[in-house]
Simulated assay, not measured.
Amino acid sequence: MHRISSAYVGEWPITWSPSVTLVPTRFCFNSCGYCSFRRPPDGLDPLADGLSDPQAQAALRLRPWAAEVLLLSGEVPPGSPQRRAWFSRLLALSRLAWTEGRLPHTNAGPLSIAEMASLGRFNGSMGLMLEGLGPAYDALHRQSPSKRLAVRLGQLEQAGRLGIPFTTGLLLGVGESEADRLAALELLAQLQRRWGHLQEVILQPFRPDADAALLLNATEQADLLGTIAAARSILPPEVHLQLPPNLWPLQELPAALAAGIDDLGGIDSSDVINRAYPQPTPGQLAEVLAQAGYELTPRLCVHQAWRRCLPLAMQRQALRAESRLLASKPSGLRSPWP
């Protein structure tokens, strides 16, 4: 792996990744009390609710400008007789994205080293949320075997050993203490100093779903702004800090950027996990940012500084995808990305 030196310091624009989301399945053997994405195991084929190849192709062609294909899946337990079919579907969708000229980014829970290496041949980057450490997370994940801290850390280490550009993050506002947040950030900083593969850390506010949906109030924003600033001081400077823009009041977004956020993540037409929180359009984001003196710039799922970590075939795919992405970049505040 080509390591990204922690001595690297650069000034970045505010980036985002035009994205299209494919969901192989919502079946998941974890049971996180806050999750509105999961379909519980019920004896059926875990892929029964998944996408066929024609459905996936149709979704890709509806968003031709989306260079990132996010493969977001529920989890089949290791050792299950259904695990092989589930993983084969992830691999098939990655290949499909590749043949369509895109770069997939898979977030499908913990993977074996062989599974991760196989997906790494087609994925520009991969991801897994750390979520956090401390008693608040232990309580939330009591019925979620793959959310155990040792399992998550093992995955982050494994991605580092394989040299895969990786995204992780924290779920904030579930009852954790400030000390828990700082300890989690220190842990991620240690991993980055050892392996150099963490391209971005998501600082994701937990928000209630459905009828309880509510944007962050001023007190909650102030609390999270302090965590963003702490993350920027704790994490090595090359690590990008990401905030999902639909979970933060749009007009208050510049305050988060001033605190240290420099990336808004993959943006599809909707958020398949936080469905009660509509995505702002790229045009809306660009206008709010421009008023505060920031430029919104599209990117691939793999950030520029991590491209050289990729196999040569993947680097060539990234160049092709980037050429199409930049050709679609609008002038002014116009956007071809509805």
Rank of each mutant, 00 (worst) to 15 (best):
P278D: 10
S5C: 03
E75G: 05
R308T: 13
M314L: 15
M129A: 14
Q242A: 12
R194W: 00
S177A: 10
L319Q: 12
C28F: 10
L171C: 03
G260T: 03
G134Q: 07
S52W: 05
R181Q: 13
R38A: 08
L257I: 04
G127M: 13
L187E: 07
L247I: 03
R95N: 01
P330G: 12
T99W: 08
C301K: 01
I267Q: 09
F87D: 00
A321R: 04
A48Y: 06
H105N: 12
A179T: 13
L72N: 04
A290M: 10
T168H: 02
V201E: 09
R207A: 09
A92H: 06
L216M: 08
L140G: 00
G173T: 14
G160I: 11
G226D: 11
P165I: 07
A321V: 10
D271F: 05
R232C: 08
R121A: 14
L326G: 00
L289T: 01
D223L: 15
G120S: 11
G175S: 05
L310S: 02
G134K: 01
C35R: 06
V239D: 07
L312R: 11
Q143D: 15
Q155M: 13
I164D: 00
P24Q: 01
F206M: 03
P282S: 04
A150D: 13
L172H: 02
T297L: 10
L188T: 07
G226N: 09
A231K: 01
D42K: 02
S112E: 10
D271G: 03
P280F: 02
W16Y: 14
I14D: 00
